[in-house]
Every structure is written in C-alpha cells, then in structure tokens.
Simulated assay, not measured.
Amino acid sequence: MDSASFEDLLAHNRDFAASFDLQGFDGVARAGVAMVTCMDSRLDPLGMIGLVPGDAKILRNPGGRVTERALVALVLATHLLGVERVLVVQHTRCAMASKSEDELIAALGASAGMDASWLDLGAIDDQRQALTADVHRVSSHPLIGDRVKVGGFLYDVDSGLLDQVA
C-alpha cells in the first residue's frame, strides 16, 4: 500500500474532522431532498441548491442517470430517510451527452489499451428526453409513485443556473 499517495488528503481530513459537527446525526435528509446527478467534478450538488451536508441524499454516476441502483436508493430515501423531493440533474458539456456510445468506447479502449466494447457506458443522445424518461422512471416506480415531487433539471456549468426541463 502506498500511503504517501493519500497523505495530502488525509491531512485535509484531519483538518475537516477538527471542526466536524455531524456526530450523532441520524442520516435523515433534513431538507427532505434527494438529487441524482453526474459525477462531474464541476458540480457542487449541495451548493447549487443552497443546502449543506445533512440536508440531502446525493446519488452520483456518469451522466446523472436514474439507474436501477439509484432507484433502490430513492426507494429507501423516500420511505426511511425523509426524502419528499427528488431532483434529477444533468449538466451542459457532459462527456456522456457530447459523444456517442461508440466514441466513448473507442476513447476508453484507447486509454486502457484494450477492448472496452463489452461495456455499456450509457451515452445520452438527448438530455431533455433522458431527463423526462428518468423523472417518469422515479414517479412511476411502485414504491415511490406520488409520495414525492420529482423534477428534471439541466445545470449550466458555465453560469451555475438550473433549468427545469421535466
């Protein structure tokens, strides 16, 4: 194990822990919010909607899609963790929406130096259509249904603004 590779992060963690104030917190989403969004490092899911740690459940994956595992998390969140509103948030200039599946597979294969054609990366052809489908996927789930309000949003990585599209 190469612990030196992580020393800078561990030092920052010690600083973080020195003022940590969520001890004993029960894990309920204090603001009643869950967000499914992309793993892109330009996104600050809590900050973009004025929340702080403890307020929301954040689920991240490439492209910000409502996958099977994301649905499981949303079912748990709505029944056991106080979630009443779900935001599905994709963003502008997303690699998953700016290249085709074949282009992404080719780039990945070139980087890895091996065939990656067996992967299903989930490229997004039309973000607005994908957001509409994902909102429907959440709102029509038999264990979620109309228990929560669900919206689909496109986040502009250049302005920081959310646009509700579904």
Score class of each variant (00 low, 15 high):
residue 124 I to Q: 06
residue 28 V to D: 07
residue 161 L to R: 14
residue 112 A to H: 05
residue 20 F to I: 10
residue 166 A to D: 12
residue 39 M to F: 14
residue 20 F to K: 08
residue 68 E to I: 07
residue 24 G to S: 14
residue 65 R to W: 00
residue 109 G to F: 04
residue 31 A to T: 03
residue 163 D to C: 03
residue 85 R to Q: 08
residue 80 L to N: 11
residue 97 A to Q: 10
residue 121 L to P: 00
residue 42 R to F: 07
residue 164 Q to W: 00
residue 112 A to M: 11
residue 140 S to L: 10
residue 2 D to C: 02
residue 158 D to I: 05
residue 92 T to R: 04
residue 22 L to S: 11
residue 127 Q to E: 14
residue 38 C to A: 03
residue 42 R to Q: 12
residue 137 R to W: 05
residue 13 N to G: 09
residue 68 E to K: 09
residue 158 D to N: 11
residue 118 W to H: 14
residue 91 H to N: 05
residue 102 D to H: 10
residue 1 M to G: 15
residue 97 A to P: 03
residue 7 E to G: 01
residue 71 L to Y: 04
residue 20 F to P: 01
residue 25 F to T: 12
residue 69 R to M: 01
residue 112 A to V: 03
residue 31 A to V: 04
residue 124 I to K: 08
residue 72 V to D: 13
residue 134 D to M: 01
residue 42 R to E: 12
residue 151 G to Q: 01
residue 116 A to Q: 12
residue 162 L to M: 03
residue 6 F to Y: 11
residue 12 H to M: 15
residue 27 G to M: 07
residue 23 Q to M: 13
residue 54 G to I: 07
residue 57 K to E: 13
residue 46 L to E: 14
residue 24 G to P: 10
residue 11 A to T: 09
residue 91 H to Y: 04
residue 83 V to T: 06
residue 68 E to P: 00
residue 61 N to C: 03
residue 163 D to A: 11
residue 26 D to P: 09
residue 162 L to Y: 01
residue 95 A to T: 13
